[in-house]
Amino acid sequence: MLKKLFNWLDERLGLTSIYNVVLDRKVPKVNWFFTLGSASLFLFLMQGVTGILLTVYYVPTPDHAYDSIQYIMNGVTFGWLIRGIHHWGATLMVLVVFLHMLRTFYFGAYKYPREITWLTGVILLLSTLGMGFTGYLLPWNQRSYWATTVGTEIPGTVPFFGQFLTNVLRGGSDLSALTLSRFFSVHIWFLPAVILGTIGIHLYLIIRIGISHIPDKDD
C-alpha cells in the first residue's frame, strides 16, 4: 500500500532521481570539519523557525518593541525558550559560518572549480553579519540602542558621502522609529530573501561539483 503510494508520487515528483542525484552520490572521504556547512544551514533553519515565532508577538515600534519582548519573556508560555534559542542561535551561527569560511580557506576549497561557490559563501557570511547587526537593535533596550547608535556612526566617517550613508542606514539623521522599522524589515525580509536565494545557488554548486577533498602533498 505504502509502496503503491510512493510509486504514484515518484512517477509525478521524480523522487528516485532526486535521491540518486542528491543523496546517493559518491564523495571523497572527508573529516569532521566538513560538517560546518550543514551546521550553518541547520542553524539558519532554527533561526528561521524561532524568528517566525517571535514575530507572532513582536511589534517593531519604539513604543511597544521593548514591552512586547518583555511580554514574550514573561507573559507567554515558553517565550523565554524561543527567544533564548534565537538569541544564542545568532551567536552560534556567526561563529559556525566564520569557521566554515576558515575551513574552506585553509583547505584551498575556493580554487578551481569552486570560485563561484566561494563568492556565494562570502555573500552568506556578510548577510549573516548583517542579520546580527540588524537583529541587535530590535529589542530596543539600552544595549541595542547604543550599540546601533555607534554602529551606524561608523560609515559616517567616510569622507564626502559618509553622513549620507549613516542617514540611509538610520532613515534620517537620528536613531528613531524609522531606524527600527527599516532594521526590522531588513532583518525579516531583505536579508532572509538574499540568504535563501544564495543558499540555493551554494547548494546547487556543491551538489553539481561535489565537496572538495582534503589536500595532500601532491595538490
Binding site: 551546521a39 532554527m46 521593548y66 523565554w80 552560534l92 530596543w140
Partner: peptide
C-alpha cells in the same frame, strides 16, 4: 554535529538565557 549544536542551544537558552536590559 547539528544535533550537538541543538542540544547546546537548548542548554544555553535554558541555563543562561537572555540578559535583562532596561528599555532604551
Amino acid at each position: 554535529v547539528s544535533f550537538g549544536l541543538f542540544i547546546l542551544l537548548i542548554l544555553l537558552a535554558t541555563f543562561i538565557g537572555v540578559e535583562n536590559e532596561p528599555k532604551a
